[in-house]
């Protein structure tokens, strides 16, 4: 079958081909989301996989591993979990004595929103974000570097609303070049403005 490309289809394709502008905020969100997932990746699983790659690994040892995992699972579920960690009975369950607190039965409660943060500081040794959402605490929200030369990223939980913030780069306050600035009335210097909408 012949390809359907003719002059008109060429013109259609040309009209749809121009590339949109890069969006630094979207890029930052992707990298922060990925970084957060990397930080959560279970190191134990990596160790198990490395062990399985060893030449001495056999089917018998796989069975042993599965049995051990099962046993550990039973023990930890019953013995090690604190009451807070256990699954609460849901309101729908016949045995429920306390209804579970969920977003569904508290629809009006305002919740903190995870906000991905990135900052480019190639030569920096330490970067954190300080703002009214963490009481300008330099130790509350450290950023970590994404790759050896990549941007610094973190995800901070912020209540919906308008917030002021800055980055602390090797002990020096720096405003976010990608965000609007304003005068911070409490500290006298410039601060960046973060608007967080209700999810």
């Amino acid at each position: 079958m012949i390809d359907e490309r003719d002059e008109l289809i060429e013109r259609v394709a040309r009209a749809l081909k121009p590339l949109p502008q890069g969006n630094m905020h979207a890029r930052a969100q992707i990298l922060a989301a990925v970084h957060a997932r990397r930080a959560q990746a279970p190191r134990r699983l990596t160790l198990v996989l490395e062990w399985m790659r060893q030449p001495t690994f056999s089917v018998a040892s796989a069975g042993l591993l599965a049995a051990a995992a099962l046993a550990i699972g039973f023990v930890t579920r019953g013995a090690l979990s604190t009451p807070d960690e256990r699954v609460l009975p849901t309101a729908a369950s016949p045995s429920a004595s306390v209804p579970a607190i969920t977003a569904a039965n508290e629809p009006n409660k305002v919740r903190a929103v995870p906000v991905p943060i990135t900052f480019d500081a190639a030569g920096a040794k330490r970067v954190s974000i300080v703002g009214d959402f963490n009481d300008w605490d330099s130790t509350a929200s450290p950023l970590t570097r994404f790759g050896p030369n990549g941007p610094w990223t973190a995800t901070v939980k912020v209540m919906p609303g308008r917030h002021l913030y800055a980055f602390l780069v090797d002990g020096k306050l720096v405003v976010d070049p990608r965000a609007p600035h304003t005068r911070d009335l409490d500290f006298g210097g410039d601060a960046s403005v973060l608007m967080v909408n209700q999810p």
Binding site: V34, F146, N149
Partner: peptide
């Protein structure tokens, strides 16, 4: 390699 992932995002995001 994190840097490679950044290169992928930068290269393919517009497309």
């Amino acid at each position: 390699e994190a840097q490679a992932f950044i290169e992928i995002v930068d290269f393919y995001y517009p497309r």
